[in-house]
Design a protein around this nucleic acid. Structure first.
Length: 584
RNA sequence: GGGGACGUAGCUCAAUUGGUUAGAGCACCGGACUGUCGAUCCGGAGGUUGCGGGUUCGACCCCCGUCGUCCUCGCCA
């Protein structure tokens, strides 16, 4: 046995016992006669003291060690004198009087900063990821994620779901994201695609009568990266039979509630609120609204329609909208702040932000002079603007003004410090449209995916007015992020066929690409639905982090490379020849 | 593919308008020190300023190219 205890468990009650601990030297303080060594492992940090009467060999070794050396130390636990206890450390009430000191491995100076709260350059941290694991924040992130997975497993098993593993090597499908392709050696010229999502596989499990399925599964998509997007990411995938929206949402909501309570330590009230997609867009300018704060958006097009202000007048006359946010008096703006708002909405194509102050006795600011007394009264009524507050306006087409005000609202929330990472506001968004018009491709696209069922009362509209059809789809948003999304699926082959036709996929094409799945719908497919949750984003948001890299052990760079191993890399001509591949 | 920020010692950063020998903290090396916990004190070593080219009497600084990291738009059913 190499050690009797870990570096996190010794307390005053252990006083008098002889212990042996192993770990990394976190710090060494040499006072000449006395030397202190802080020893760290993943459980904590324990202080050792090498006293003048320690064996000479132990004193020599202790004098030799440097940061991050790996050592094994034996000694006697002693309660520290009251005045030298360390309250910041769980083991701070004891120290270990060293009797033996063995160096297991020396270490060169490490190329990343390891102390709590410190960061090195991101490239450095990716290259030397294994060293970053020694830092408390990263260690906590991995431990927290493991606890999260444990809660998920417990929840799904308790709820009667069966864990089924599905393949990663699949047939490429044309819809969706770009595939990662894997060449077949046995069939030169043919390729597998790495799994983008087990969507159809889990529907087949339902058709097979598995009733309730779940899996934590790695998915792959060859698209450009973001702070919250990696080429491979982890989903919690869930599907259940003979259910409606409320059954699925209950499973997801109770799980998220448990995770918030057991991982983030926050007891969020249930049931979570619901908002329809159209309300979410109207009130928050987003289909994943951040409900931690107000500052809701209001459409004031009708109020300012007759304003002499050309920006308002012309936009409304051309069928566009004017949208407003009333900022309460307690949130002060400098003139510079107001000017900088233009760049916030410019990303969405909006021209700028008009504003006025609800001052006494008269409104001030550039927009004020264009607003008649009647308009002002109506604006106050519509937006809840208060005296001393500020009204912000964004004008443009619906496609521009709605997301622009959504961005503006989030910017204001951040600017005024209203987006507390330690508070959580989950909200269901439902009644998404089934389809959206792709103006470039001149065709309909599935908002969720092509297997999402339309709302029963809207099915008749599929032929007449597809854009009006609502989907039996639902997202759970929290703090401005999409945590999970799901739907009730199409289980009737005729509806699935008409869905493909609407999406511009011919019967022949559908047969060629999805025939294996569509055929399954003919052999007794039960009504079913489910959801998929992004575990990386969930882990990040529960920890109050914005980058999922911080909760992934070995993440890739924004260019999808692995700085540690150097992937992707070229391969031997021999390997390519075996696969029948020649580089161009 | 587009836009933006950044790249200086092992690590984190500084360096005035383009001007003397590119500095500091930590780490590392040597020394002192019996209660520290970011120990302290004395001394030392450590630099192709990412790389290549250009402008200039003179470039960490300006220009061009290139490589890398991050953010973002497009993209992500």
């Amino acid at each position: 046995m190499m050690r009797t205890h870990t570096c996190g468990e010794l307390r005053a009650a252990h006083a008098g016992t002889t212990v042996t601990l192993c770990g990394w030297v976190q710090n060494r303080r040499d006072h000449g006669g006395l030397t202190f060594v802080d020893l760290r492992d993943r459980h904590g940090v324990t202080q050792f003291v090498v006293e003048p009467d320690a064996p000479q060999a132990a004193r020599d070794e202790a004098a030799k060690v440097r940061l991050e050396w790996v050592v094994r130390i034996t000694g006697v636990v002693r309660a520290r004198p009251t005045e030298s206890r360390n309250k910041d450390r769980a083991t701070g009430e004891v120290e270990i009087v060293v009797t033996a000191f063995e160096v297991l491995n020396a270490a060169e100076p490490v190329p990343v900063a390891l102390a709590a709260g410190e960061r090195s350059g991101e490239d450095q941290e990716l290259k030397y990821r294994y060293l970053v694991f020694r830092r408390p924040e990263m260690r906590e992130a991995l431990l927290r994620r493991a606890r999260m997975n444990h809660v998920v497993r417990d929840h799904m098993v308790t709820r009667g779901f069966t864990e089924v593993e599905t393949p990663s090597l699949l047939r490429s499908t044309p819809e969706g994201a770009r595939d990662y392709l894997v060449p077949s050696r046995v069939h030169p010229g043919s390729f597998y695609a790495l799994l983008q999502s087990p969507q159809l596989l889990k529907q087949l499990l339902m058709i097979g009568g598995m009733d309730r399925y779940w899996q934590i599964v790695r998915c792959f998509r060859d698209e450009d990266l973001r702070a919250d997007r990696q080429p491979e990411f982890t989903q919690l995938d869930v599907e259940m039979s003979f259910c409606d929206e409320s059954d699925v949402q209950d499973v997801a909501e109770t799980l998220v509630h448990r995770l918030l309570k057991e991982i983030a330590g926050v007891d969020v009230p249930r049931p979570f609120p619901h908002v329809t997609f159209s309300d979410a867009m109207e009130r928050f300018g987003s289909d994943k609204p951040d409900l931690r704060f107000g500052l809701e958006v209001r459409d004031v097009s009708e109020i300012v329609r007759e304003s002499p202000f050309v920006v308002f007048h012309d936009v409304v006359a051309a069928g566009g909208v004017v949208r407003a946010i009333a900022v309460p008096a307690k949130h002060a703006f400098t003139r510079k702040d107001l000017d900088s708002l233009r760049t916030v909405v410019a990303d969405r194509g909006a021209k700028g932000v008009a504003w006025c102050r609800i001052a006494e006795p008269d409104w001030t600011g550039p927009a004020a002079k264009h607003l008649s007394p009647a308009m002002r009264a109506a604006l106050v009524q519509a937006t809840g603007a208060e005296t001393g507050g500020t009204l912000l306006f964004v004008a443009g087409t619906r496609e521009i003004a709605i997301p622009a005000t959504g961005d503006l609202r989030l910017h204001l929330g951040s600017h005024f410090g209203l987006r507390d990472p330690k508070s959580f506001a989950p909200v269901w968004v439902d009644q998404f449209p089934l389809l959206e018009w792709d103006a470039d491709g001149k065709r309909w696209n599935a908002c969720h995916h092509p297997f999402t069922a339309p709302l029963a009362e809207d099915v008749a509209l599929l032929a007449s007015d597809p854009g009006k059809v609502r989907a039996r789809a639902y997202d759970l948003a929290m703090n401005g992020l999409e945590l999970l999304g799901g739907s009730i699926r199409i289980h009737q082959p005729e509806i699935q066929a008409s869905m493909f036709r609407l999406l511009g996929i011919s019967d022949e094409e559908a047969q060629a690409r999805f025939g294996w799945f569509v055929e399954a719908l003919r052999y007794g497919a039960p009504p079913h639905g489910g959801f998929a949750a992004g575990m990386d984003r969930l882990a990040a948001v529960l920890a109050g982090l914005t980058s999922i890299r911080d909760v992934i052990a070995f993440p890739k760079t924004a260019a999808a490379t692995d700085l540690m191993t150097g992937a992707p890399s070229t391969v031997d001509g021999k390997q390519l020849a075996e696969l029948g591949i020649r580089l161009v």
